[in-house]
Amino acid sequence: MNSVTIEHIVKKYGAKKEQVTALNDISFEVAKGELFGVIGPDGAGKTSLFRILTTLLLADSGTAMVDGFDVVKQYKNIRNRVGYMPGKFSLYQDLSVEENLRFFATIFNSSIKENYELIRDIYVQIEPFKDRRAGKLSGGMKQKLALCCALIHRPSVLFLDEPTTGVDAVSRKEFWEMLKALKLQGISILVSTPYMDEAGLCDRVALIQSGKIMSIDSPKNITQKFTKTMWAVSSAEMYRLLNDLQQYNNTEKCYAFGEFHHLVLKNDNEGKDEIMIYLLYLSHHEIELKTVQPNIEDCFIELMSKSNHQQ
């Protein structure tokens, strides 16, 4: 049985004239024990999707099942067995770490003792501060506490809506390591994020933009669908290089990507020599030019521009 099954979910907001489609015919499945990523920028529809699955919002059409229960008719069953961590960590700032945890445990008809094993690895990191008010914790510690609170009743499916937003790179890394450990405990996890580089840590991902799923597969398969050659170029003057490459007549697409610019050519038969000649002609120096494996962000850009063209 799947942990989550979604079929043709549509959600619209606003009055008829200025209606905004938040989710446009979304369908996918998440298997038991899977770590599933919903990846897309703010406003793509991630939060609406999570709220529908956690029974907080009604879809306009379509059906969804969580852990075998219908999100509309059997919402009470679902509320007994899912864990949910909303966007901005929902903690009581004026309650201490321990008080928060005990409160959420009790509200979900459980106790800290009962499921301590499950959260131990995470909780030990914040336990030294258990008497500190949640409002006085750092972003990373708040995130860990919120995760503990969402886990304390041992949910069968865990929904994490942008758990790493606004958290620094180190805490993000640690957080994903925690999720991997949880996966081993057999909990299905749905996590949404705007950070493309986090996609590689999921079993499967859905790339979502403007309420539509552009691609859904394992990160590896998604990047393999990118058939063209991806060039990485750098020189001493990066900004001029970007402008020049965008002017190059065989350029399909060129954009900044970290220390390099990523370049896709219209005609893949041309290659290194032609680009080199063009750049030397424009007197660039310290040129570095190589092919690279496209990553999720490259694919996202590719898919985004494709769907923009269709519109």
Binding site: R51, T54, T55, L56, K76, R79, N80, V82, Y84, M85, P86, G87, K88, F89, S90, L91, Y92, Q93, F104, I107, F108, N109, C149, A150
Partner: peptide, 13 residues
């Protein structure tokens, strides 16, 4: 306002 309502609603409370 502080978003805890979302979690309370999702709970069996």
């Amino acid at each position: 306002e502080i978003n805890t309502m979302e979690v309370l609603l999702v709970s069996p409370l």
